[in-house]
Simulated scan of single mutants.
Amino acid sequence: MRFWTGGYTADMGGGADGVGTLLAGSMHDASAGGPLTYEGAAAPAPSPSWLARHPSADVVYAALEGIGKVAAFTRTGEAALARLGPAVEVGENVCHIAVSPDGGSLIASCYGDGRVVRVSLDAAGTPSNPVAGAPAANPYALPGEDMPANFVLGEASAPADDGAVLLRDFRASLAAAEEGRSVEEPAAPAAAPQGAGRVSHAHSAAFLPDGRVATTDLGFDLVRIWRPTASGLRPDHEIVLPSGSGPRHMVVHPSGHLHVVTEYSCEVFTLGRNREGRWVLLGGASLAAMAGDTAAELASSRDGDFLYAGLRGSNTIATVRVRGAGETVEPVALVESGVDWPRHHIIQRDTLLVAGQRSNDVTSLTLDLRTGVPGRVRYRAEAPSPTMLLPVG
């Protein structure tokens, strides 16, 4: 089975040459459990740190992070790509791309300037006409600073709906469990939210089952909900996560729930729709991370029963079980990833592939399909500064 690999090139301190290819077993294998071989560059490009595939055309999109553009590539061979049209400028440090299910557009998330940009795709998959959505506002703004009208400052600093109560109760229960006390006992005072020092950092997007789009803002602790329009994105509403949590990447559960991993607090939160159709916080779980860890990617098993989060620092993979109808998550295990700085990972049947950005390699771990827990490293291949793994087809 073959994978496209994203990576950092020299412009961002990496050793990659562009979009690469990785072989797991033979190219005709339906699984990724075989030996790993890095085959080299499929197409030159400056720091294609995130990749996404068109749903019907044989086209791959790359976030060229260092130059703030999105490029399209069409497949010209088993392991070769060629540019499709000119790269489209979207924003500073574009780090994520999500392509719409109908193939008519993509959403680019820009870490550097916080921009969320809709890019049109024509019938061939060629990108054009980037349109930025409304900028995010700081929900933890201090008195006197600008903040959006649909937020209220209070104990939870959350929207004025049932999500505020759930957020407060969940965080209180989590803090109590960590400190070994009952939830009725007072918790230690929380650090004061940062005000003007916060900076917007858009980090990912996901197309939701109801036709809307969710995006994360890691800097403002927001999950933003948008309605796509013919000309761009219209803000619908926003969900505030705990101060300093840093929502990064998301997974849509088969049930329709949305799971969000937070980079700084190393937690997984679950969002769902209330009776009014607004997305609200339902709960979450700590990943039992070690001091100094930052979470990276969040991936799901095919049936949605397990989630896997990469933790950079301890270089581990956290396994989380999903229960109920997708609304409940609980930690299961923490295992070694076998790489330094697990930037990205992907599940293929009974195999977990992990991209080690700093160790310049990719590892494969076999999953126990009963417990959901990855085993020890089975295979390893050297690969330059890998940041993303994407199945070829």
Rank of each mutant, 00 (worst) to 15 (best):
V116R: 01
R198T: 06
S182F: 14
Y140H: 11
D113I: 06
A141T: 06
A164S: 11
S120N: 05
L81H: 03
G114N: 01
A72K: 00
G133R: 03
R118F: 03
P193C: 05
E184Y: 13
P101Q: 01
R118I: 06
L142K: 03
E185V: 13
L153S: 12
C110K: 00
C110L: 04
P143Y: 07
G77E: 08
S120F: 10
G195T: 06
P135D: 02
L153I: 10
K69V: 13
Y111I: 01
S200V: 07
E78T: 12
R75H: 08
G154M: 08
G195V: 06
A158T: 08
D146F: 15
S182H: 10
S157F: 15
H201E: 05
T74K: 07
H96L: 01
A80Y: 10
V119Y: 00
L81W: 04
P193Q: 04
S105M: 12
H96M: 03
A187Q: 12
F73V: 04
A149L: 13
M147Q: 11
A108G: 03
L166T: 12
R198S: 05
A192L: 13
G103W: 02
I97G: 00
S109Y: 03
V199M: 09
P159N: 09
E155A: 15
Y111S: 01
A141Q: 03
K69A: 15
L166N: 12
P193D: 03
R75M: 13
S173P: 00
V183L: 09
A149C: 11
S173M: 10
N129D: 15
C110I: 00
T76M: 09
V199F: 12
D146R: 13
G68W: 06
G197I: 09
A63P: 04
A158E: 06
T126S: 12
A137R: 08
V183G: 09
T74G: 13
S120A: 15
